[in-house]
Nucleic acid binder design. Structure first.
Lengths: 124, 124
DNA sequence: TAGCGTGTATTAGGTCTGATAGTACACTGT
DNA sequence: ACAGTGTACTATCAGACCTAATACACGCTA
């Protein structure tokens, strides 16, 4: 199931949110797919159901999933999601570039390294 | 003077650390320069002296500054600092690229935007 | 020497967030 | 009726962050 790093200082519910975001954005979970129930996932990840519920609430607010009372949570088919996330992504890139320049990193170095990172490794 | 965002959820001492890091790395504060005293900066930023001390402790651990008892804190002349920071910077870039790929961002888009960000704006 | 301005250390308390625990209720499907 | 689901609420604990107050050691200078 989901990979959670319990050593990480990042909140558990945030980790859950991010992992599920990746699963949805990468297409691993198609629109309409039912997510594990709050209680089931809590047992699976050795967490409190409230922690999972908090994660699901975040995902719902951001449009990734929608809940159906008495049935479960399902992956949304929102088409604008990717655009919105990409916009946020590039804002982060801009901030990072600023920091890089303060560190004396040149545009050439940055582009070269970034292109390299793009080639290697897997998405997940 | 340092610019601190009190609305930001990022801890005050971390913001102080980052601002001073930028001042040093960008060369605005040369090696040997004396930093404001813990008490003076605390008054200046409307913070508790202990908060400033925590920030100065972080900066000392990372090699940015060194303290002299009874005199004050001074900017270190460590040459390896920039390299170390650049290494950390590129690790962050790598993580960000991973996320970008999960979002369906192509290498061309990324490089184009990043290059753009490199041209515009100021360092600080 | 006395005093002032430094850094440093310690203890205490307040606030917020993250996480757990337990309980209760409404809805769906069989 | 029952089981499984989402949802809501309260209570409690732990840790991080920040403030507050105090005390001590050191360097400089009148």
């Amino acid at each position: 199931m989901l990979t959670i790093d319990y050593q990480n200082r990042k909140p558990l519910y945030e980790q859950v949110v991010e992992r599920i975001q990746l699963l949805i954005l990468s297409g691993a979970m198609e629109p309409g797919t039912q997510l594990p129930s709050v209680r089931a996932l809590a047992v699976d990840l050795s967490m409190n159901p409230n922690t999972i519920q908090k994660a699901y609430n975040c995902l719902e607010k951001e449009g990734y999933i929608y809940p159906v009372k008495g049935k479960g949570n399902f992956v949304s088919g929102d088409k604008g999601l990717k655009e919105k996330q990409q916009k946020l992504f590039f804002e982060t890139v801009e901030q990072l570039v600023k920091r890089g320049r303060a560190l004396g990193v040149t545009r050439e170095e940055f582009v070269k390294q970034a292109a390299l990172y793009f080639e290697e490794g897997e998405v997940l």
